[in-house]
């Protein structure tokens, strides 16, 4: 499963000026209360915690303070070939900046080596405008760019991958669905039936072990009408998401109610599962496409009042 989000963050006065300068291919540091220059700049003094406001230009070359070497770069890192990570003290600064060094080979990395900024082709006012650093050679440095509009926001895409493992109980439930069955489990202590099974009874805290096959019909305990569009939405709004209490279960589960107008859905409405065609079944909750009205008379409130 991949999870991704573009984090968009507003900038305070110090980082706004820093990012704007990056867009102009310049690097700013700030002067702290003890006279030291910090690059990248700090918003608050590390000694007195007072806001810092005096920005000074530093770099674009500097000295490696410490380093390591990465043979296999990870997703999102500045370079996709083996490179060095380093803390780099830029000329004119007293503290160091973390960045990548495109040295080609680990043999070229050493503490004290001289490096220089390599700029991204099209700076936008983001820390990634510094593509990386490179060993200082005689080739001419990139000149600063033209004046940029003030940068007040930065956007950083974040993507992570996860491999989710099912518990024993979830596995039983999913295998049941693949055979067209709904499998819950009963708590050995209080006797309540949970679907999907949860690993431990949330009332008693003991593992649930006894399987219970449940019918694929039940009662709407509560519901909402979704009117708001959102990215990835599969059904055009308005549509209904409801808690459905399967007959014999002690906990409702969430599903779609289709097959009627949203304004016809009500608490106590009796509904039945609509399964996808058997040839599409897998070990997935999507085997039940949605629930629809079963046509039975509404369940009395008292029959589900304990499960709201």
């Amino acid at each position: 499963m991949e999870i991704g989000f573009d984090y968009t963050r507003s900038l305070g006065p110090v980082l706004s000026r820093f990012m704007t300068a990056l867009a102009e291919r310049r690097i700013l540091g700030c002067r702290g209360s003890d006279g030291r220059v910090h690059a990248p700049p700090l918003e608050y003094d590390p000694v007195t915690y007072a806001p810092l406001t005096e920005l000074v230009e530093v770099g674009p070359a500097g000295t490696v303070v410490t380093w390591t070497w990465l043979d296999r770069p990870l997703d999102g890192q500045p370079l996709d070939r083996p490179f060095g990570w380093a803390l780099i003290r830029l000329d004119g600064a007293d503290t160091a900046m973390l960045h990548a060094v495109d040295a080609g080979s680990k043999d070229r990395m050493r503490t004290g080596m001289r490096v220089r900024v390599r700029w991204a082709p099209e700076p936008v006012g983001h820390i990634r405008d510094i593509a990386c650093f490179e060993p200082l050679t005689d080739s001419p440095p990139t000149l600063p760019g033209p004046t940029a509009e003030p940068v007040t926001m930065v956007t950083t895409p974040i993507h992570l991958r996860y491999r989710h493992t099912t518990s024993t109980e979830e596995s039983r439930y999913l295998r049941g669905l693949a055979e067209g069955k709904v499998i819950g489990q009963r708590c050995p202590s209080c006797g309540k039936v949970y679907v999907p099974p949860r690993g431990a009874c949330p009332t008693c805290g003991v593992p649930t072990v006894d399987d219970v096959e449940l019918p694929d019909r039940g009662t709407v305990t509560t519901f909402c009408v979704v009117n708001v569009p959102f990215p990835g939405q599969r059904i055009p709004p308005p549509y209904v998401v409801a808690y459905v209490l399967l007959d014999g279960a002690d906990i409702p589960f969430q599903h779609l109610i289709l097959g009627c107008r949203p304004d016809e859905v009500r608490m106590g409405m009796r509904v039945a599962a609509v399964w996808r065609p058997r040839e599409q079944w897998g070990t997935t909750p999507q085997n039940i496409d949605h629930f629809q009205p079963s046509g039975e008379p509404d369940a009395p409130f008292n029959s589900y009042a304990q499960h709201l």
Binding site: L11, A86, A100, I127, R128, I158
Partner: peptide
Amino acid sequence: ALQLDPYLHAPLWPDSVSIAALQARA
């Protein structure tokens, strides 16, 4: 990497082992 400050460090995805290595060498 996402426990680092989100403006200057996290966008570079510096991994935890590399950061520890910078400290080890220092």
